[in-house]
Amino acid sequence: QKEELKEKAKEAVKRGNKDKARELLKRAGISEEEAKKIIKKIE
Rank of each mutant, 00 (worst) to 15 (best):
E32F: 07
E7L: 10
E7D: 08
E23T: 00
K2H: 11
K20L: 15
D19Q: 09
K36Y: 08
K10G: 06
I39F: 02
I30L: 13
K37Q: 13
V13F: 05
E4H: 10
E33H: 08
G16K: 03
K37Y: 05
Q1C: 13
K20F: 13
L5A: 10
E7T: 08
I38D: 00
K18E: 08
K20H: 11
A9S: 02
Q1V: 11
E32V: 06
E34S: 03
A21F: 06
E32H: 06
K18W: 10
I42S: 04
E7K: 11
K8S: 07
K6W: 15
L24I: 09
K40L: 12
E33N: 07
K37N: 11
E11N: 06
N17Q: 12
G29F: 00
I38Q: 03
I39Q: 00
E33C: 08
E7P: 02
A9Q: 02
K8D: 05
K26G: 15
K20D: 11
L24Q: 06
A28D: 02
K36P: 02
K36G: 10
R22S: 10
L24N: 07
A9T: 04
K20N: 07
N17M: 11
K14C: 11
G16P: 01
A35M: 08
E7V: 09
K36H: 12
L24S: 06
K14F: 05
R27D: 15
S31K: 04
L5M: 08
E43S: 08
E11M: 06
A9N: 02
K26E: 15
K10Q: 07
E32I: 07
I39E: 01
K10L: 10
K14R: 14
G29W: 00
K26F: 05
R22F: 15
A35L: 08
K26N: 12
E23H: 04
E33Q: 08
N17T: 03
D19Y: 03
K40P: 01
I38L: 09
D19R: 09
I38Y: 06
I38C: 04
K14G: 06
A28P: 00
I30C: 13
A21I: 05
E43F: 07
K14H: 09
K2F: 15
K37T: 09
I39Y: 01
K20C: 13
I39W: 00
K8N: 06
A35V: 10
A35K: 01
K37L: 10
L24Y: 06
K2N: 11
I30W: 10
K41G: 11
E7W: 05
A35C: 03
L24K: 03
A21D: 01
E34I: 06
A9V: 14
E11L: 06
G29K: 00
G29D: 03
A9C: 02
E43V: 08
R15Q: 14
R27Q: 15
I39C: 06
A21Q: 01
Q1H: 12
I38E: 03
G16I: 03
K37V: 10
S31G: 09
I38A: 01
E11W: 00
L25C: 13
E34F: 04
A21R: 00
K40S: 13
E32N: 08
E11C: 10
K36V: 14
E32P: 07
V13M: 10
E43P: 02
A28Q: 01
K41L: 13
I42D: 01
I42Q: 05
E34R: 05
A28F: 03
I39L: 08
E33L: 07
E4Y: 12
A12F: 06
K2M: 14
A12H: 08
R27N: 14
K6P: 03
R27Y: 04
D19L: 06
K26D: 15
K2L: 14
K2Q: 12
I30T: 02
K36N: 15
R22H: 13
L5W: 10
K40V: 10
K40I: 12
E4Q: 10
D19T: 09
A28L: 08
A28S: 04
K40C: 10
E34Q: 07
N17P: 01
E3V: 06
K41M: 14
A9M: 04
G16Y: 01
G29P: 00
I42A: 10
K37H: 10
V13N: 02
R15S: 13
E43D: 05
K18Q: 09
K37P: 00
A35N: 01
E34A: 07
G29L: 01
G16D: 04
L24D: 15
E43H: 05
V13T: 03
K8R: 13
E3Q: 09
K37G: 07
I38P: 00
A28M: 07
N17K: 08
E34Y: 04
A28E: 02
K18Y: 15
K2C: 14
K10V: 11
L24M: 08
E11T: 06
L5R: 04
S31A: 07
K26V: 14
V13Y: 07
K41A: 14
E33M: 07
K10H: 08
K26C: 13
E3P: 04
K10I: 14
Q1L: 14
R22Y: 15
Q1I: 13
K40W: 10
I42K: 03
I38N: 01
K8G: 05
K18N: 11
E43C: 08
E43Y: 07
A28C: 13
R22E: 15
E3R: 09
L25I: 04
R27M: 13
K20T: 09
N17Y: 08
I39S: 00
R22T: 13
A35Q: 04
E43G: 06
I30Y: 15
A9Y: 04
E3G: 07
G29V: 00
R27A: 15
I42C: 08
D19S: 09
R22G: 11
V13A: 08
G16E: 02
G16R: 03
A35I: 15
R27S: 14
Q1K: 12
A9L: 09
I39V: 05
E23K: 02
I30F: 15
E3T: 08
A28I: 05
E34G: 04
K36T: 14
K10R: 14
A35Y: 04
G16M: 04
E4V: 10
K40A: 14
R15A: 15
A21E: 02
K6H: 11
I42L: 13
L25H: 04
I38S: 01
E11A: 09
